[in-house]
Amino acid sequence: MSAVLRIVEGGLFTTVQDLGRTGYQRLGVPPSGALDPISLRSANLVVGNPPGTAALEMCRVGCTIEVEAESARFALAGADVAPPMLQSFTLRRGEVLKIGRISGGACYLAVEGGFALAPVLGSLSTYTRAGFGGLHGGRVQAGDLLPLAQPAAASRRERRLPHPVPAERDRPLRVVLGPQDDHFSEAAIDALLSSDFTVTPEADRMGLRLSGPQLTHLGRPEITSDGNATGCLQVPGSGQPIALLPDRHTTGGYPKICTVITADLHRLGQSVPGTVLRFEAVAPEQARAVLTRLESAMAGMADLLREA
């Protein structure tokens, strides 16, 4: 008898994501992968998986699943939900897990052993725009059967983390100016670094449209396409920036005023409509120091694991 998770309700936007695909942007393929890679890695840590094991990424409203396996061990991390966070738990055949409302952006449900799915271009991440990766290239929906790599949970005690990775949650998102900051006036750069920007309802895994003071271009609001990166703030003619997320285009024709640093991408990925964002400029060298701190905090989390 095969071991699967039966999806009873899909939730609002639930996809299989790992840490993304690497090496195919030259073919126009975006990296995809978790909006909040730190939470994905934390959930995997609690169930004992390698950090980049694919999990279910749930946005705003989570899924409901039924275990059709002898047993399966789970952990949740990321934006808060009703079931216990950062703590492993095991369900037996026929038991149902309902995630429900998510207070915040993305919540990750990791399962011990991961999913028995074939990678596409080196990754299990779902890229819904082109319909590949994950379970069937799309959102996980009611009736789907998600195959598990492990027929039953390993026999061991449950574990928990006492707290999430410290993440300077109230601090502005740190950005490196550029690559096209020279397409904007000093006043526009000042406005970028001193104003509140609110995430609008136009938000998906490709990007977040922000609303704030108009960032006026010095010249035409377009460039001959060049390379994008996750975290770039591109500014179209409206003067309202769009923060690029993992399903973004690989190249783009709008000037990019700044780019959120790697260590803050997980915080950007947790933004939802209504979230107020502020930005703070740093040099690439400072960004590297922040990343080193985050990674050493992440490495230290393994020592904080306790029996539940």
């Binding site: 690497t22 690989t250 190249t251 690439p284 590297r288």
Partner: peptide, 23 residues
């Protein structure tokens, strides 16, 4: 260096910043 994207006028070089700094 994890990705290289040649465009109409430039090359964007993506790195793993914990292994290779931009400097």
């Amino acid at each position: 260096i994890v990705e290289r994207v040649a465009t109409l006028r430039s090359l964007t070089i993506h790195v793993d910043p914990s292994r290779l700094s931009l400097r």
